[in-house]
């Protein structure tokens, strides 16, 4: 297969990352920035998962090679592949990236929750969630030598 086909997954995932990064950087709206950040983080996860896919493999839950499901998988992958890459007669996808990305997803939602909580407080303190307006408000107040505590 040509490089385009063999690396299609990676390239598509990278396009997703670029999209997330663009959304994150191009907007001044704090909630939208969090959405961009979430896409950026998630797509990194998709990159890892792409690395761990093994063609002809199945999810890393141990199967009996002689069961119907194991037979069907083996038939699909071909005996030679199974002999070479299988573990006790079944080819599995790589479980390690899955574990790592489980962790990363949870870290992502934690970041999202804390970020949005700060954004909500910002709205209460400044009345806006646009970066430009917040900066303008701060400039005015700093110039006047006073800083308000949040309500």
């Amino acid at each position: 297969m040509s490089a385009v086909l063999t690396h299609f997954n990676y390239v598509a995932v990278i396009v997703l990352m670029m999209g997330g990064l663009y959304i994150l950087l191009s907007t001044g709206n704090l909630v939208r920035r969090m959405i961009g950040l979430a896409i950026f983080q998630t797509s990194t996860g998709l990159f890892y998962i792409s690395l761990g896919k093994v063609s002809g493999g199945t999810a890393a839950i141990t199967l009996d090679a002689v069961s119907a499901e194991g037979q069907a998988l083996a038939a699909r992958a071909g005996a030679e592949q199974v002999a070479r890459y299988g573990v006790e007669g079944v080819i599995y996808s790589n479980p390690l990236p899955h574990v790592l990305i489980l962790t990363a997803i949870v870290v992502g939602v934690a970041t999202l929750a804390v970020g949005l909580a700060i954004a909500v407080r910002l709205r209460e303190a400044y009345g806006t969630i646009e970066t430009d307006e917040i900066q303008a408000l701060d400039r005015v107040l700093t110039a006047a030598g006073q800083v308000e505590p949040a309500p």
Partner: peptide, 11 residues
């Protein structure tokens, strides 16, 4: 589709 059933569930 990528065989990452646990991750899919979490996502």
């Amino acid at each position: 589709v990528m065989d990452a059933a646990d991750v899919a569930f979490t996502e």
